[in-house]
């Protein structure tokens, strides 16, 4: 389980403190898939970073009783001057995974072939997305944090993501951040809407979508 209790987060700006989250409460149970909806700048990525522990809340508490992935977004978290394989080794070292098997596993998912030994800066955005995804599947977590999965990649890659996440790891909890309502609807068991720093959770995805459309309209 993961508990968010009255979580607040504010950032210093040139015009004083800016509160992104003002008292967010959420409980994530094992195995459940929660969609997070919110407009641009509503604080979805901030929420995900707080869940992952990459950032600390300004107030309130984040309690993790299960292992939580880093935010799986298909861009960042690389050292681009290093090769794909260097990045694989880094993840293996940090998360205590066997390096010997990692190469073939990543290669089977990312299909980068000999480019795995080239610097990441030479990769196309699709190749980076595939590597990022393969890296995050290298470590098994109880809860995966998924930020805008459907944004990149071709159909084949999309199908691989679906199989890895929603078939092979269907027993895991997932927090899915997306603007794509159809995607949330087809994958999530419940849904929460982030607006004005407050998270409103709905047991029913349709209800959340209805509320989201109203605040958007």
């Amino acid at each position: 389980m993961i508990f968010l209790s009255d979580v607040r987060k504010s950032y210093a700006t040139n015009h004083g403190a800016f509160e992104v989250l003002s008292g967010v409460n959420l409980t994530i149970h094992p195995g459940e898939k929660i969609g997070i909806l919110g407009k641009n700048g509503a604080g979805k990525s901030t929420l995900v970073r707080l869940l992952s522990g990459a950032e600390r809340p300004s107030g309130g508490a984040v309690i993790r009783k299960m292992s939580v992935s880093w935010p799986i977004a298909f861009g960042g978290a690389f050292q681009t001057t290093l090769t794909g394989m260097d990045n694989v080794r880094f993840i293996c070292r940090v998360y205590n995974r066997d390096e010997a098997n990692a190469r073939s596993y990543v290669d089977s998912l990312a299909e980068l072939g000999r480019f795995l030994d080239e610097p990441v800066r030479t990769y196309s955005s699709g190749m980076r997305a595939r590597l990022a995804f393969a890296l995050s599947m290298l470590v098994e977590f109880d809860c995966f944090l998924i930020d805008e999965v459907v944004a990149v990649g071709d159909l084949r890659f999309h199908q691989k993501c679906e199989a890895e996440l929603f078939e092979k790891r269907k027993d895991r909890a997932m927090v899915i951040v997306s603007h794509n309502e159809a995607y949330i609807k087809s994958h999530c068991t419940r849904c929460a809407v982030l607006s004005n720093g407050v998270l409103t959770a709905y047991e029913n995805v349709d209800e959340a979508l209805f509320y989201y459309q109203n605040i958007n309209g």
Partner: peptide, 9 residues
């Protein structure tokens, strides 16, 4: 900074 995505780093 991009490595700080990993909680333990």
């Amino acid at each position: 900074l991009s490595l700080m995505y990993h909680r333990n780093v």
